[in-house]
Structures are given as C-alpha cells and as structure tokens.
Design a protein around this nucleic acid. Structure first.
Length: 553
DNA sequence: ACGGGATGGTGGGTGGTCGT
DNA sequence: ACGACCACCCACCATCCCGT
C-alpha cells in the first residue's frame, strides 16, 4: 500500500514514484511525495480508513502482499501438479486423484473441498468460494442435469466424483489466471478471499504503472454506474436457419483500438462520446497495454481455460472502472467503450434488422450473414465471426407483450442452448428438465409445450417427478414466511447435514411432496403415493409461465 | 334488496437464480 | 455486487351466485 502526500503517521518509506491523483473524472500527475507503507498487511484495511479520514490519499490498498511478491518477481508461478478432491464421510477424509481413490490426505498439489476444510498440505481450494452457489446446481450446470439424479440417490462415490469434476475445472481456471497474470494460484486465492477477478486485473494494471514510475490513487465510488441494456429482439416466435455472429472480445478490442486508459483520459472536442459526459480522448497507457497483451494472448491461445481466464480478466478489469467500492475508477473510460459498442449495435440494427442481438452478438437469417460479415470486416480493429447457423431459434414473449429480452432457445446439430431465467428449465420436475429438448422440438413443430410436459410426466420414473432446488442453511434459518418450498427444505434440513440443503419437492394442495412423503406447514408428514404425486406434478406444470410462454409463440 | 361465501384478478413482499 | 425476473404467498378488492 502507498500513501500520497505528507509523511503518514505510520511506518513508511519514501519511494521515487510520481502519483497520479484523481481530479474530477480523470487522473493528473501531482508533485506530492509517495510513501510505501511498511506495516503488516493485516492492518491495511483499518489503516486505510484511518488515513483517509485524516485526508491522506492511498494507492493499491486492496492488493494482498502475497500478490505483490509475485508481481515483483520475488516468487515465480509454478504450474502443474495433481488435482484431488476431498470430502468428509463419517469423519473420514475420502479423496480422488485422477483414477485413484484413497483415505486421509491425497498426494496432490491442489486439494479441493466443499464444506469441511481438510487439514492437508498443498494449495487448498474452497470450491464454495469459487462457485458461489449450490454444489449440485454447479455440477448440473456444467456437466449435465443427469447429475441431479445422482444428487437424489446420494451415493457417496457419486458425490466424490462430482466434486472431482469441479476440482479439475477450478484448478485449471486458477492456473490459467496464474499464467495470464504471473500471480501464483495461492495468491490468486488470497485475492478471492475478499475480492473478485477485477482486483486481480487491477493488481496487474498497478504493477505496469509502477514499472513506468507511477502510482495511481485509489478512488471510491458509492454507486455502480447505470447499466444500459443492449439486448433487442424482433418479435416472439420460432425462426429457422438463423446465423449467429459474434464480436470476439468486443470491449477489450475497443479499449485497444482507441487506447482507452484511465491514466490518459481527458475531455476533448473530437474524441469518443462517453455517454452523457461529453467527448473524451485517450492516449493509451499502462492499462491499455496490459489489455492489449491479454487480448493478443486470448486470440492466439487454443486452450479454453486460458481463453476464459483472459476473458474474465479483461471484462472484470474494464467493468471495474464503473464499479462501487475501492479501485481504479474511470467513468469516462467505461462509458466511452459502452457508448461505442452501443453505436455499433444500433448501426447493425439499422443495416440488417436482426432477429435478435445482445451487446456483441447479432442473429440474422442465414442469407444475410455474408453482408453482416463484410460490414464487420470494414470496422477495423474488431473481429466479427460467424459462430454458426442454428436450425431453430426461439424468442420468448414477455408477460406484458413484446420480446422477453435475454430469453431465447437455440437448437441445432443435436445441441440445445437455453438462455434466460424465463425459459431455463429450472423449477420444473426433473423428468421435464431432462427432456426439455423434446419440449422445444414440439414447440418448433407448432405443438403445445404444456401438454408435451404433461405427457413426459405421465411416463416418467417416479423419482423424476420432483423439482430440485438448493437452499443455504443460514438463509433458511432467517426466513419469516416459509413457502411450501421452505417447508420442504426445513423437513429435509432436519434429516441431513448438507449445506446447501438439497431439496427435491413438489407443491401440492395444502402440502408439499418430498420423495414419497407429503408434508404440511407444521412439518407433519404422511406417506404419499405415486399417482397422487404425478397428478400434483401435472397440475404444477400447467400453471408454469415458462411453459405457457412457449405456447403463446 | 341484501349479505355471505366462493371465485378470480391484482399488487406488493419474499426468496431464489441468472447474467453482467 | 446489483438488477431483472420468476414462483409463491397473502391481503385486498370486485364480482357473482344464491339463499333469505
């Protein structure tokens, strides 16, 4: 952490760096002194508050020392080493490493867990912190809804195997971040304790500025910038043979093309429009250069994990210019990029009247794709690519008419992609969730999705009649007005030690069904038979808006 | 003509998930 | 982190039916 200005009343040494301090919406060079704080890092949070209260300005106050040791070359990133998953069963640590299974601590560099932390050597990864949602929800999202059937059965080996899948993915992502930033996985995890990828990106921005002899003042915003929705759809309906075109890394490309950088942003009469702030010019700088390097890396890598890590770093780094909280704030930078993206988006709509578009994507009839591609090629510095042609593309109607934005289904070549909470087959019985592709096929052929779902339920195995949802114990404890779902959750929570609680349930008439038991609000239970539950499931899907919306197309 | 129960729509609140 | 959106729940209101 650095202090800018008079000598601070703490242990600090003078360093020969030029401060860039915030003035209005931009940064300017100052002749003030710069001090490196020598106090232990655990005190920085408190120290910052005290110093800021006394009128001192600070820099890099949120970068952990572990990250700094890597950025200054005192430590080198070491990649590779085995990835193991560990979980506790009856007080015993069971692990999987590749195809090997064992008990105790695994002989692996990365030890990932969910729930109780194993006391093992190596880089310990808390998967709860990485995925920030329920265990089975994360597994189902990434590796298929079939895993929810295993969640229902609850076989210990299935849990360990699912855990291992997440562990491998998480370790690969963390290593990719390490490779891209030069910050070791242990230090990346330190950042994630209190912060996000944005803080990691900013650490690299700061280091590059420092290398050039500058420190950039930390500033703080209390409100996030307003978010402009850039999604637009033509009309609800089923479209056939739809070409999808995407800009690859649009925001980073615009940063690089225009040299957008917080350290050189300044108002000028012929620059880029920055929303309502007027026009701004940029001359590149340390931040734009880092993003340039990351963009080149992303365009040349064939490794998906590395590509994803770079995408996160760039988007989080750029997005953080308008975030609330401490950081490298630059409203004109973010607004200039967004406004330019919005201008291109509008131009595409004027020229091609797409079926659908969202920020950096354009969906048009197959025969228009060539025209869109040549337009993209004429823009300079941007890469517009044909991602593919979908056999079926469905735009959902909104409840109040028009298109429900960011809600669509695209299907082709046996694959199916569903976007948006309105259409995603959550909150539906597992059988329907697993066979959602069939429901979509019926819609594409002009049939009734609700009756298709009811048909699926009539022939479904009994355990697939339930809906899956997760609820965290902490949340469950503070719920005042429990719904039927929470009633089921409380009933299940009393019978397992899981967190989040994995609830398989189905709302009924005055009761909620959990596998083969009907529970009322006082948590009184009676057995329920299959046909009773099947009827409740059919009634339930008939009520669902997400299926009736598909019917209205 | 009146009142009470049943029914159905609405709007606000709560909780959860997705997407950025 | 935050907004948008869905399912659910409840309070509230209008309407209708029907018996008195």
């Amino acid at each position: 952490m650095f202090v800018i200005g008079a000598r601070p009343p703490i242990r600090a040494e003078r360093v020969d760096l030029i401060p860039l301090v915030r003035r209005g919406l931009t940064y300017v060079e100052s002749s003030d002194a710069v001090w490196r704080v020598c106090e232990p890092a655990e005190r920085w949070e408190q120290l910052r508050a005290k110093l800021v209260a006394k009128g001192y300005r600070v820099s890099q106050s949120y970068i952990p020392p572990s990250v700094r040791r890597y950025l200054h070359g005192e430590r080198k990133v070491e990649l590779g080493g085995g990835v193991a998953a560990v979980y506790v069963k009856d007080g015993v640590f069971k692990w999987r490493l590749g195809d090997e299974y064992g008990v105790g601590c695994p002989p692996a560099k990365y030890v990932a867990y969910w729930g109780q932390r194993p006391n093992c050597n190596g880089v310990v990864i808390d998967l709860k912190k990485i995925y920030k949602r329920g265990f089975w929800s994360a597994v189902a999202e990434r590796f298929g809804d079939q895993w929810l059937l295993k969640a229902l059965r609850g076989e210990p080996d299935d849990v360990l195997n699912a855990l291992y899948l997440l562990a491998v993915e998480a370790a690969r992502f963390l290593e990719a971040l390490a490779l891209a930033t030069g910050v070791g996985v242990d230090a990346v995890l330190d950042v994630f304790e209190n912060n996000s990828v944005a803080a990691l990106a900013e650490a690299v921005f700061h280091r590059e500025a420092e290398r050039r002899g500058y420190v950039i003042e930390d500033s703080r915003r209390h409100f996030d910038m307003p978010y402009f929705d850039m999604a637009r759809g033509r009309a609800p309906g089923v479209y056939k043979r739809v070409a999808e075109l995407d800009f690859k890394s649009l925001f980073p490309s615009l940063v690089v093309k225009h040299g957008v950088d917080p350290t050189t942003a300044r108002p000028c009469s012929n620059g880029l429009r920055a929303g309502g702030l007027g026009r701004y010019c940029f001359d590149g700088g340390p931040v734009a250069d880092v993003i340039h390097k990351w963009l080149d890396q992303r365009l040349s890598t064939g490794d998906k994990a590395v590509s994803d890590a770079l995408k996160w770093l760039m988007n989080a780094g750029i997005g953080a210019w308008g975030k609330a909280g401490w950081g490298m704030i630059c409203e004109p930078c973010l607004l200039a990029v967004r406004t330019e993206a919005a201008r291109l988006f509008d131009e595409a709509w004027r020229l091609f009247s797409p079926i659908y578009g969202d920020t950096d994507s354009i969906y048009v009839e197959e025969d228009k794709a060539g025209g869109v591609l040549s337009w993209g090629a004429s823009l300079g510095g941007l890469r517009l690519e044909l991602r593919g042609v979908w056999d079926v593309f469905i735009l959902a109607p909104a409840r109040r008419g028009g298109v429900a934005e960011k809600n669509y289904v695209k299907a082709g070549g046996g694959g199916l992609e569903v976007k948006g909470g309105l259409l995603r087959p959550h909150d539906v019985p597992l059988a329907v969730r697993l066979r959602y592709g069939d429901v979509i096929r019926v819609v594409a052929e002009g049939g009734d999705p609700v009756e298709a779902a009811v048909g699926i339920l009539q022939n479904a195995p009994p355990e697939q009649l339930f809906i899956y949802r997760a609820v965290w114990r902490e949340r469950l404890a503070e719920i005042n007005k429990p719904s039927l779902f929470h009633t089921a959750a409380r009933y299940v929570a009393e019978r397992c030690s899981c967190d989040p609680v994995d609830v398989f349930y189905l709302p009924g008439d005055g009761v909620v069904y959990t596998p083969w038991v009907a529970v009322d609000k006082r948590l009184r239970a009676r057995p329920a038979d299959v046909e009773e539950v099947r009827r409740a499931a059919a009634e339930y899907v008939r009520r669902l808006w997400k299926l009736r919306a598909l019917r209205l197309i």
